[in-house]
Design a protein around this nucleic acid. Structure first.
Lengths: 116, 116
DNA sequence: ATTTTATATCGTATTATTGCAATATAGATA
DNA sequence: TATCTATATTGCAATAATACGATATAAAAT
């Protein structure tokens, strides 16, 4: 077998650059309404525990826990142990990184010439 | 049946705001290395046809066509008919929109207070 | 020590995504 | 008209994502 199967159906990640794969998986971590909602709630209250989000969103505790894990694995949020709870907050570096990436794309686009 | 099943496994989109759902599906359209590569190639050459991308990337023509369709449906690229080919280019509005969204999140994050 | 509170993990049913061969469609060319 | 070129669509096998009940783990409170 020649391919490595990593993410999303059958994906030939080895054919793309590391930067392209990294950006894709970072965006994938955000590409779900529940995770956007979780992110926005954490930004709004600055920091909170998993159970706060369970009370905020109409999803079961294991589901929220799973989404938090994905956000954490992608480096979008950080989790600090606080007693028997875990306090989550945004990793502002990643958000800034994303902002810069899209700014970079925006700058590269030649706005003068129309499509085709 | 109380739920509507729309995207990615079982997803309860009706429980989230329209903005959250829209951002999630926009990011989902970009959340694949092949689509990032396609986007970068289109930006690089300003405009190109499907077959150019087939020659550029190690994916079959139907696969490229499918990815182009997803990018087009998300409003990230535009396609203009040119003879028997279709010329694709970036929709700079969407890229700018994404840049502004992440800039907005970045501004909202309270950088002074540390996590927890 | 027992119960409560908070979170993570496992197992699994359901649905979505990916990639491509085969085929269809349509304009251009000979 | 027949062929070439470019793209889209269909069908399908393989894989990934989602959601949650049941359960495990661990610290706090009683």
């Amino acid at each position: 077998m020649q391919y490595r199967y990593i993410t999303m159906g059958i994906s030939k990640t080895e054919h793309f650059t590391e930067k392209q794969n990294e950006l894709a998986s970072l965006l994938k971590a955000l590409a779900h309404p529940a995770r956007i909602a979780i992110l926005e709630h954490i930004i709004k209250v600055n920091a909170c525990i998993c159970n706060d989000i369970v009370n905020e969103l109409p999803l079961a505790q294991p589901t929220i826990s799973q989404h938090l894990k994905e956000l954490k694995n992608a480096g979008i949020i950080k989790g600090n142990i606080e007693g028997n709870a875990i306090c989550y907050c945004i990793d502002e570096k990643i958000i800034g990184k994303l902002q810069k990436i899209f700014l970079g794309y925006e700058m590269k686009i030649e706005k003068k010439r129309a499509c085709c």
